[in-house]
Amino acid sequence: MLLRVTDRGLWCEPAQLYIDPWAPVDRAVITHAHSDHLRFGCGQYLVAAPGTALARTRLGAHGDRVQSVAYGEPVTVHGVRISLHPAGHILGSAQIRVEHRGEVWVVSGDYKTDPDPTCTPWEPVRCHTFITECTFGLPIYRWPSTAQVFDEINAWWRANAAEGRASLLYGYSLGKAQRLLAGLDPSIGPILTHGAVETMTGLYRDAGITMPETTYATVDQRDPAWSRAIVIAPPSVDGGTWVRRFGPSAAAFASGWMLVRGARRRRGVDRGFTLSDHVDWPQLLAAIDATGAQRVLPTHGFTGPVVRWLREHGLEADALATRYEGERDDAAVDETEAGS
């Protein structure tokens, strides 16, 4: 096996390195900068070039251990050819292609195939074995078109603004927040951000991604124009003191989970917008098909049904037990779904 799971992560023995390890190791290749994939304490990190600043910021004191490589440019380690390819998940997200003695494996990381102007679109990479995430690997998950979702978001914002209510739109501060920002119609009103979102958005701007003008909503400023504003913030601030400064407001949550009514209701926000940075069921099947892989190892999601479906369709498939948790906003929903 070219790649296998150990207690530290996805181990590539011939290259002597780990992909997205969840414990400190000497050498790590990283799919993207979300916290369940990029952990502290490794000796060396290799990331795709557009995600360098994100990884460095996230690692703080360990930022100087990050090295980068352009998409598609191979690096050879102990005779193993390694290259990173766009995953379309967030800025700098990559699939990891590993080639050794003619055998090719691809690790998808998190990915989506829907359009997103804030990152390089996903590309299929031919391989023998495909390790794929399946966060939304059930046929109930079929995304509405991105354009339609943004029409709904802007209409919701416009209606709130007309009634003098601030619009609180929650999404994970890295990736989801910037995708939301890119789809907003700035003519409706001011766009405010939470500190965590503002920091990440600055890094997107530095990377040359077009972002609308945003104002970091600090504690000591308050402005009457805020009643027409949209506020992009991580979901953890909901119901807390931070959001009170905006006065009368409506709250919405943007996530793939919002497709299902039960999850919307458990979230307890006024609206749920179905906007995901993962593939839905048809996209997952199409992506698997496009890799031409004969063996598929689903992880990170509904592995049971996906494995069974693939086997019934003539592929070799096994669930791979990893410790990637899904984005924190998604995980937060998982938690409420699992708890009482």
Binding site: L138, P139, I140, V260, G262, G304, R308
Partner: peptide, 26 residues
């Protein structure tokens, strides 16, 4: 109608938690 086997319908139902909604989505 969704062109899926019964077991996958049941897995989907278990996740959505509601028959009417499962059908709506599938």
């Amino acid at each position: 109608a969704a062109d899926i086997p019964d077991w996958l319908f049941e897995d989907s139902y278990a996740q959505a938690g509601d028959l009417a909604e499962t059908i709506t989505l599938l």
